[in-house]
Design a protein around this nucleic acid. Structure first.
Lengths: 169, 169
DNA sequence: CAAGATACGTCAATATGGCTGTCCCATCTT
DNA sequence: AAGATGGGACAGCCATATTGACGTATCTTG
């Protein structure tokens, strides 16, 4: 395993054989941080009889209007059938609608209805409150580090997808 | 909402009203980073007919031998019934064993069997590979920032629990 | 010591969010 | 015209969580 030359070699060990403690700390903080963040929106979702799976779809459709279903499938990495149920629920509640693609008429492009936009924004507020206070407490350089490490956890083949999300808006 | 005075005020906005884009970036990276990391161990788990819920229990028992069940319940934040099934599965496979507490004989203290220790170490290797390469690519200051932000996501009432985990070893 | 709280186990029923496999139709590409 | 692709739908299954109720052993406290 090659070690990037930009990483300074500590006297103790190669960065790829980090002290177990540092890795466990990351595992644990990721677990607690992620689960606690997601809990921040459970109440809002439950008010509409929806779950986290619905929010994930809602979120990414909000993020990329006119997203084709195939793209959402790649992002969520679940099966067509699982996504189908989720989208049906969202459509039934008038939060998401589809249009036929004009370039490729086989595609259905997903976007939020005005109600969907409002609901997603409301859920996003809860996420923003949590994340913004964590950002503020940690400081800007910490936020940059936070992003960098997480980027390193994303396999190369998925990275383009994430970058595409963050290009627009 | 109070803003910590240590945070420099940018010309654009207060840190608690960060640009939406920065918050969305964090949400997305957390989602992809967390889910991709957890996928790293699915194969090893499936080989024993176990799922992620089993790994979470296994992990925290490995981390804190002689953990009482009540402590594990607080960490995982699931119900007694859900944990019960998971622990039964792990005990049936000879990975976890319980002893009656000597201080409080109502308690059952959880620890891994030698096979459990070996299995957890094997799963941990996969996590270490993923995290260590992300750490190495990002650099040490980034890792510190990564930790800081995640700590900020953990509610105050849960923080003591996380600190306790990271004190020993 | 009696009463109540706590730690753990267990029952039954239910919900959610995944999965596989199969088949179908419309549309695009070659 | 043939095949590939985007999407939808069927049936059935599994993993993981939930609530509520109840039982037993043990500790704590008035």
């Amino acid at each position: 395993m090659a070690v990037p030359s930009s990483v300074s070699v500590t006297p103790t060990a190669s960065p790829l054989f980090l002290r177990e403690n540092e890795v466990r700390r990351g595992v644990e903080l990721l677990f607690f941080g992620y689960t606690r963040l997601t809990r921040a929106i459970d109440e809002g979702l439950a008010a509409h009889g929806l779950g986290r799976a619905h929010h994930r779809a809602l979120y990414f459709v909000a993020r990329q209007p006119d997203l084709p279903i195939s793209a959402l499938l790649k992002i969520l990495a679940i099966t067509k059938q699982s996504l189908g149920r989720v989208l049906t629920d969202l459509a039934d509640r008038g939060l998401v609608e589809t249009r036929t693609g004009n370039v490729d008429r086989r595609q259905k492009l997903l976007r939020l209805t005005p109600e969907g936009i409002q609901f997603e924004a409301q859920l996003f507020d809860a996420l923003r409150n949590s994340l913004a206070s964590a950002y503020a407490a940690a400081g800007q350089e910490s936020v940059t580090g936070f992003w960098r490490v997480l980027e390193g956890l994303i396999p190369a083949e998925d990275k383009a997808m994430v970058v595409a999300l963050q290009r627009d808006i």
